[in-house]
Design a protein around this nucleic acid. Structure first.
Length: 271
DNA sequence: AAAAGCCCCTGGATGC
DNA sequence: TGCATCCAGGGGCTTT
């Protein structure tokens, strides 16, 4: 479910509330993607210092070490003072003095991993190959363009891959390519500087607007306060197969790329 | 090294 | 109502 905007919206919805809080107890439910990497009891007594985001990962800096969280496809976090009893899909609880941070994840593609530091092998295995942060100053047009030049696969796949730029998942890849007028199957290496500049701007624009709208709630996403997002209402192509393109009125198309659905407009995306 | 496929898992929608 | 099939916002691992 969650792409960069949803993860960022989630972070913003509980970071202030949890920062500085003492960890009082930890409950682990069904196994997630990877084991926690430490005994749950060893987290007790530590404080949550800050909550950061890297790509689609959330990083909770503790007094000692970092708790890395990932929401996978179906994960969401909630933070509340009076949480209900854990349900069948609540697989991780971090009980703090300020409230309970809970990961709900039906499909269990998500993860919570404790690492001693960001430089540790465990952390680098997850974070080491990540590309540029699209909402930060290090997302430079030149670096983006030269990175595209070095890739031979379809531009959509390069965006999803996360090695050049992080956080762009299936929804936002479709949307940014539409806004930039680029065919999703276009070889990345053949994208012109002008198109790369346009795509770069579209990525910045779409992700920032999606964060402002609280992310996209397709099925069940909500932030840590339980609030839904509304960016899906502004989607130009994603999930709109057969419906008229909002720009040219031609029917939006659907195709498969690397086992994922790609929505696009053949009329508006000719580059 | 890069690229393409496969797989992890559950639930909801659709079709017969 | 029941059952089979397909699909879903991710990404690591294995194979080319």
């Amino acid at each position: 479910m969650p792409e960069l905007p949803e993860v960022e919206v989630t972070r913003l919805s509980f970071a202030n509330a949890i920062e500085g809080a003492l960890i009082e107890a930890v409950r682990v439910g069904k196994p997630l993607r990877w084991p926690l990497g430490t005994a749950p009891a060893r987290l007790v007594g530590l404080h949550v210092r800050t909550v950061r985001r890297r790509g689609k990962y959330l990083l909770l800096d503790l007094d000692e070490g970092i708790l890395i969280m990932h929401l996978g496809m179906s994960g969401s976090l909630s933070f509340s003072c009076r949480p209900p009893a854990a349900g069948p899909h609540d697989h991780f609880d971090l009980q703090t003095a300020r409230g309970l941070l809970r990961l709900n994840d039906p499909r269990r593609f998500g993860a919570v991993v404790y690492v001693p530091s960001e430089d540790s092998p465990q952390a680098q295995k997850l974070l080491g190959k990540l590309g540029m942060e699209p909402l930060s100053a290090d997302f430079a047009v030149d670096a983006f363009y030269s990175g595209l030049k070095r890739r031979n696969s379809a531009i959509k796949q390069v965006l999803l891959g996360g090695q050049l730029v992080v956080g762009v998942g299936n929804i936002y890849a479709c949307e940014t390519l539409f806004l930039a007028g680029i065919r999703p199957t276009r070889k990345a290496s053949r994208i012109t500087r002008r198109q790369a500049t346009l795509l770069h701007a579209s990525i910045c624009d779409v992700l920032a607007r999606a964060v402002q709208k609280g992310g996209s709630t397709l099925r069940d996403f909500s932030n840590a306060k339980g609030e839904n997002g509304y960016f899906q209402l502004e989607a130009m192509v994603y999930g709109r197969e057969g419906l008229p393109c909002k720009v040219c009125a031609q029917p939006v198309r659907l195709m498969r790329q690397g086992q994922r659905s790609t929505y696009w407009c053949a009329e508006c995306q000719k580059a």
